[in-house]
């Protein structure tokens, strides 16, 4: 079995086992406590959550899988995608200057995200162990205020790399494809409603619009592909 097939096989099996284990927790604990909810209670509560999160979950999977490649499996299993895994992936691709969708990019992204997942799981475990001693620091107003701004700080750090591209293949003028949706979303956010809670869903609309616009601009020569020489010193 080659690397790709092995990744897909373990990834799919990993998802299956993770889902079984996740549902095992309430099943086993509910049976132990003799406190299983009825199907009616479950469905009534699920409706409010599912109506929001099922479409977002599907949209995020379809939008991020092409960016993350084989790393998608471990990314989605360990979660915290926008606020952690996606920036880590982009950072690693910039560091190694890999081309999107290439085998090199895939291997580097998977390595970076797996390391990030290990760090997060260990830190969360440490957080549980040290919950009481850490409480004064973690609940201080400075830490709470600063933690509200993880996403703008991350995006500020990454946007140059996102726009420049990472590898030897450079797509010139690609931002023109995103100009129209950008203006529309900016206006909606300025004057109507903040789209943060539905950004995942919005992506499902923005991606095809951007690709279709890019296709038109590419055919007219407004978007071009250039190959840059690899910097051998980095």
């Amino acid at each position: 079995m080659n690397y790709n097939d092995r990744m897909h096989f373990v990834g799919r099996l990993g998802i299956g086992i993770t889902l079984v284990l996740l549902f095992m927790v309430p099943v086993v604990y509910g049976l132990y406590l003799g406190a299983m909810p009825t199907l009616g209670q479950f469905l009534a509560a699920l409706f409010a959550v599912a109506i929001i999160f099922v479409p977002i979950g599907i949209a995020e999977t379809l939008s991020f899988t092409p960016i993350l490649g084989n790393a998608s499996y471990i990314t989605f299993i360990t979660g915290n995608i926008m606020n952690l895994k996606l920036p880590i992936a982009q950072n690693a691709q910039v560091l190694m200057e890999t081309d999107k969708g290439s085998e090199e990019s895939d291997a580097i992204t998977t390595l970076a995200i797996s390391v990030s997942a290990i760090v997060t799981v260990l830190m969360m475990s440490l957080g549980v162990l040290l919950l009481e001693p850490l409480r004064p620091i973690m609940t201080s107003s400075a830490v709470q205020t600063a933690s509200e701004y993880v996403l703008p700080a991350l995006f500020g750090a990454l946007v140059i790399g996102l726009l420049k591209g990472t590898g030897q293949v450079v797509v010139k003028g690609k931002m023109k494809a995103g100009l129209m949706p950008f203006i529309v979303i900016l206006i909606v956010n300025l004057f109507i409603i903040n789209t943060s809670p539905v950004s995942g869903l919005l992506l499902l609309v923005v991606i095809p619009i951007t690709i279709l616009t890019a296709k038109k601009l590419y055919s007219k020569g407004h978007i071009t592909i250039e190959i840059k020489e690899k910097d051998t010193q980095s």
Binding site: G101, L151, P152, I185, S199, L202, I207, A214, Y218, I225
Partner: peptide, 29 residues
């Protein structure tokens, strides 16, 4: 991605462009 000089390469970059144009205005505002 394998076809370097094809629209596929541009389409792949579009995912990142879409990500930026969707999320940036939402943070900024």
């Amino acid at each position: 991605a394998a076809k370097t000089h094809s629209f596929g390469t541009v389409a792949l970059e579009c995912f990142m462009v879409a990500l930026v144009v969707t999320f940036l205005p939402a943070f900024w505002t």
